[in-house]
Amino acid sequence: MTSTPLLEVKDLCVAYGKVEALHHANLKVAPGQIVTVIGPNGAGKTTMLCAIMGLLPKSSGEVSFLGRSEDGAAVEHMVGLGMNLVPEKRELFGEMSVEDNLLLGAFVNYRRGARDHGETMGRVFDIFPRLKERRAQQAGTLSGGERQMLAVGRALMAKPKLLLLDEPSLGLAPLVVKEIFRIISELKRTGVGILLVEQNARAALQIADYGYVLETGEMALEGPTKILAGDPRVIESYLGLGTCGVRV
């Protein structure tokens, strides 16, 4: 990973009122790289993604995207630069059709004059044939897995340079999780950088190149995933269940 990073986060802090939820977080994502952030519930993973994306104000620190510092930029601006978030709650347009949801994914490019959303939608349908079958159906009536596919597909419509994924495995059956993760690792080949936040540490560490462990607002560990997956602390806290027994 010698190229300049797509995303560089330096000393990022976020607070809700007086309560700090993220404390001096640092991380980097390069083009074509999958970086994962794992950690328990309430550790501040979603907060971090929202602050990078501009959905939440940061209290200090710096977020650079494509080598430029984006200080206090709003979500809309970051989307325009090529950063897309697939949020934990999916945030679909439930009363609109699958096709309209996808179309709106291309809104930024359309506004700039691009009219190739038809082709992009074709490519998204190639990746998620299920969505093509359901194209006229209302997004609110889809199953959990289909919703996640639509959320990822909608983000791909913007032709992102960096994709932020917040818990893509949330509430999905194992087979569907497998499918989604297979697609994520394929996306990597198209040169998209991916920042993957997951609770499902085992799956995340398998497809990612580099990983971070976030605990109570702080980056506790980091390293290439092969090394991280062998770290006893990671194994004990996130990969195993059998060893943790009666300890509190």
Partner: peptide
């Protein structure tokens, strides 16, 4: 459609730019 999307889900719409 963008206006309708904002009416249905503001966060979702902002994430689409």
């Amino acid at each position: 459609k963008a206006l309708r999307a904002t009416a249905i889900n503001r966060t979702g719409a902002r994430l689409m730019g």
